[in-house]
């Protein structure tokens, strides 16, 4: 203890105990990557030492080898191309439809009365259960695959947009009206930008759901596609390929998250 502190101590004074801090996680750029790398190294070690049976889980090096074979055979590009095409179509259509329905539910009483119960009733239905119906409705071609992803992304998007529109500051809308802006202008210039944070977070969720549904969508008549590749690996009990396929899905998830993060930084600069 230092001299003045001693003096205070004699008077019976002591520092107030510190109770703050914590609860404020900050991004640690390299910690995440290091943690992941460490985990994979540990997994590899367990496989090499025979602690994990190859029947249970292939070593990461085997999965990477499967991935390399896939890339060298040229099939990786085919699978990725097919899947990304379906994802792009299904997700874009689902997001656009979700924005439209969410806006309608957020702005018009009648639309709200119609859409909200419908969303509540249909959102929880696993889309995979509807696959047989989708085959009848949309056939076994691309349409049923796109539709599966579309339906999966539409509902979370509707909910996110509706919530976002509901949360747009009403005084901003009054302001728009007081300056004589048209209804369309108010929606375009005030409601949509105001709901943009919610729309972007809805896009994040729906993009993840779209990737989740990829495997289900490609159960039906898909020759190429990451989901079809994973299904085939499962059928053949080729666990190294299975894990390789899952790695591709993870990479897709990471990429989408990164792209949306960039979009958020660009579009939501005003939020700081």
């Amino acid at each position: 203890m230092s001299e003045p502190a001693c003096a205070h101590a004699r008077e019976g004074a002591r520092p107030v105990p510190y109770r703050g801090g914590g609860f404020a996680p900050r991004p640690r750029r390299w910690a995440g990557a290091a943690f992941l790398a460490g985990l994979i190294a540990f997994w590899e070690m367990c496989s090499r030492l025979g602690w994990i049976s190859p029947l249970a889980l292939p070593a990461p090096s085997e999965a990477l080898a499967a991935l390399r074979d896939l890339a060298q055979s040229g099939l990786l590009a085919k699978h990725l191309g097919a899947s990304l095409g379906r994802l792009a179509q299904g997700w874009t259509l689902g997001v656009l439809a979700g924005i439209a329905a969410g806006l309608a539910a957020g702005l018009f009483s009648l639309a709200r009365a119609g859409i909200l119960p419908l969303v509540a009733a249909l959102f929880p239905i696993p889309k995979i259960a509807l696959l047989p119906l989708f085959i009848i409705w949309f056939g076994i071609g691309e349409e049923s695959k796109v539709a599966t992803i579309l339906f999966g992304t539409f509902f979370p998007m509707t909910i996110a947009v509706y919530g976002g529109v509901d949360n747009v500051d009403r005084t901003l809308i009054r302001m728009g009206q007081s300056f004589g802006l048209s209804r369309l202008s108010i929606i375009r210039k005030i409601v949509l930008p105001g709901a943009m944070p919610a729309i972007l977070s809805g896009m994040r969720i729906s993009a993840s759901i779209a990737i989740i549904l990829l495997v289900a969508a490609e159960m039906i008549g898909a020759e190429y596609g990451v989901g079809a590749y994973i299904l085939l690996a499962g059928n053949l009990m080729a666990t190294d390929q299975l894990v390789a396929g899952v790695m591709i899905l993870s990479a897709m998830g990471l990429t989408v998250s990164w792209l949306l993060g960039m979009a958020e930084r660009r579009l939501l600069r005003w939020r700081a």
Partner: peptide, 8 residues
């Protein structure tokens, strides 16, 4: 054309 189930 893989369809997963005989019914399909």
């Amino acid at each position: 054309v893989p369809l997963q189930k005989v019914g399909a």
